[in-house]
Design a protein around this nucleic acid. Sequence first.
DNA 1: AGTTGGCAGTGACATTTGTCAGCACTTGGC
DNA 2: GCCAAGTGCTGACAAATGTCACTGCCAACT
Lengths: 203, 203
Amino acid sequence: MKPLDLLIAEDQHLVRGALKALLELEADFRVVGDVASAEEALALMAQQPVDVLVSDIEMPGASGLALAEQVRRRWPACRLVIVTTFNRRGYVRRAMTMGVDAFLLKDAPSEQLADAIRRAAAGKRVIDPELMLDALAESDPLTAKERRALLLAAEGLNTAQIAAQLCLSEGTVRNYLSEAISKLGAHNRIDAARIARQKGWLY
Amino acid sequence: MKPLDLLIAEDQHLVRGALKALLELEADFRVVGDVASAEEALALMAQQPVDVLVSDIEMPGASGLALAEQVRRRWPACRLVIVTTFNRRGYVRRAMTMGVDAFLLKDAPSEQLADAIRRAAAGKRVIDPELMLDALAESDPLTAKERRALLLAAEGLNTAQIAAQLCLSEGTVRNYLSEAISKLGAHNRIDAARIARQKGWLY
DNA sequence: AGTTGGCAGTGACATTTGTCAGCACTTGGC
DNA sequence: GCCAAGTGCTGACAAATGTCACTGCCAACT
């Protein structure tokens, strides 16, 4: 029987190598490539068929979700397995609506990854139950502009600098931030940024 | 020749499993255990000799550095290899003064890990050159109190709440934060927290 | 005894941030 | 054409934050 061709996308070199070693232990898997960014993944997939893409969600440049979107569009047959970190949950809902096949925590038992890959290849959906809860919990209340303002605020920019970046007036920026603070039940912009980040709403 | 007995400490299950798979590929290594926390690591080491401890620096509860300190004291023969993330550099200096043997980025090529372990076991010191630069660069300018105040500010607490936590007056807290902001060349407390975190000075 | 330095606090002040109400303009639906 | 919704702006105000100069205390040093 033909083995499953896997592509691993993960920016941290060490973790990538380790994942590769782990998956190559499985007799029915063949790791056809391992890359450090979304761009490299797309380039490699253009040259060679891949059955399952195993991707981290956070990578420099285009995120794992942007990659997933591209792949879904250009190679609809390729299955998508996304791996994420404990405290960056909350991407699940967006991942789901985008047609990701499996979604796991990096904190899951390692056998579970191989299992998830096989199930995804068989056309099933695998969501870590812990993440499932988050997905059902609440949806992102922020508008795109509120998010952008909050993101800049989280980086330490003040209202004037944010306004300059977004080509808005200071007053408007403060209105956006005020909205975000109230929507998130936070006490100030720092708190709001922390909450949003923790829920995966800051990107 | 006797293989090197390794213990892996890393809280993310998947990454831990993957690292284990990677290191078990080496003929001269034997992974005698893999644990998810500093406590478990100490417990296991009490029962069984370990030549090299490979540890993540950030784990729930006691950090990798606290673990390293314990190990250094109780099993001085055990070599210490610390692995860390790209944007949590700056621990290097503290790690160095604590006698850690090797310090790597998770973002390093994976062969480098095996290599670093062998060198560490041979009594050599291995510091990722990229991290070396950081270590030489600058030392932490924050006092303990400034750090504590900044840490709480980074979590979204306001001045009054921080003052209550630290049993200080609001005025003093603002003085500390003001000092921290100026020392770090930041524009406000958010900015200061971001800078300090990035340099590894917020703990 | 006097000096120095660090720590905690105070008071005053300017600036920034958070909140709110309301205005003007565009867009799409009816 | 009219209405409603969304977007960006303004002004005003209260609250929080950032800055600075100065005081009192204590411990260490000479």
